[in-house]
């Protein structure tokens, strides 16, 4: 095993144990490991941004073409104005760049959601109900029921009853109750996925420790 790999394996092993120490409780070892990961990740990210983004863009500026140079300098100028946000007196200089970012991001998100999620998902929900097959009908029916009942659950319109109490419509109330079942199942599935992901990460770490120990032990 190369030395760098051995040292890396030892560091990884120690840091892994330090993170596992959180099972006992919050302790300095766990904090040290966490702070170390955060610091290393931030530093690495900063280095990547400077090296892969800023320097790469500056190096790629078309100095011979003024038009492209101006266009290339515009993002640089807007990025420089964002630095003005650090100073309250001149923070207004970064408002335009910030507005561009928010506006462009919102427009991109809305356009992507509309064209990439709402319409395709609506079409998919409709297409899921396939009366031509029992599975398609049942599956489509369950999906439709789940969709309708879940939406009904988040419907909060109600009327005042004769006795003064405010209640939703009985049909909506029944649908909401069914939708609550679907929501519970969905959250259960999400929890299972989270647990599975965490368990997989634990297994990967334990496997790395075992491999290190086996490598050390020559097993």
């Amino acid at each position: 095993m190369p030395l760098i790999e051995f040292v890396s394996a030892i560091v990884g092993f120690v840091l892994t144990l330090m993170v596992f120490s959180y099972l006992i409780g919050d302790n300095p070892l766990f904090r040290f490991a966490v702070y170390l990961f955060v610091g290393v990740a931030s530093g690495y990210a900063a280095a990547v941004i400077v090296n892969d983004i800023l320097l790469a863009r500056l190096q790629s500026l078309p100095l011979g073409d003024p038009a492209l140079l101006v266009i290339g300098l515009i993002p640089l100028l807007l990025a420089a104005t964002l630095l003005a946000k650090l100073f309250p007196r001149i923070s207004w200089l970064g408002n335009f760049a910030m507005a561009v970012l928010v506006g462009v991001g919102a427009a991109t998100a809305i356009g992507g959601a509309l064209t990439g999620t709402l319409i395709p998902q609506a079409e998919a929900a409709v297409d899921a109900v396939d009366p031509r097959s029992l599975t398609g009908l049942v599956g489509g029916g369950v999906m439709l029921l789940g969709t309708v009942t879940t939406l009904a659950y988040f419907q909060f319109g109600a009327k005042r009853a004769a006795d003064g109490t405010v209640k939703r419509n009985a049909a909506v109330e029944a649908l909401a109750w069914v939708g609550r079942v679907f929501i519970a199942v969905t959250l259960g599935v999400v929890f299972a996925g989270v647990y599975t992901a965490a368990l997989t990460a634990l297994i990967e770490r334990l496997n790395s420790l075992i491999l290190f120990l086996k490598s050390i032990l020559g097993l």
């Binding site: 395709p120 297409d127 299972a192 996925g193 599975t196 965490a198």
Partner: peptide, 23 residues
């Protein structure tokens, strides 16, 4: 990842994602 797969399952079901490897 297994934690994001349930939420991406509709996109796989709708055909927007051709293949989904769930964790």
């Amino acid at each position: 990842s297994a934690q994001a797969a349930p939420m991406l399952q509709p996109y796989a079901a709708s055909g927007q994602a051709n293949l989904l490897v769930n964790g």
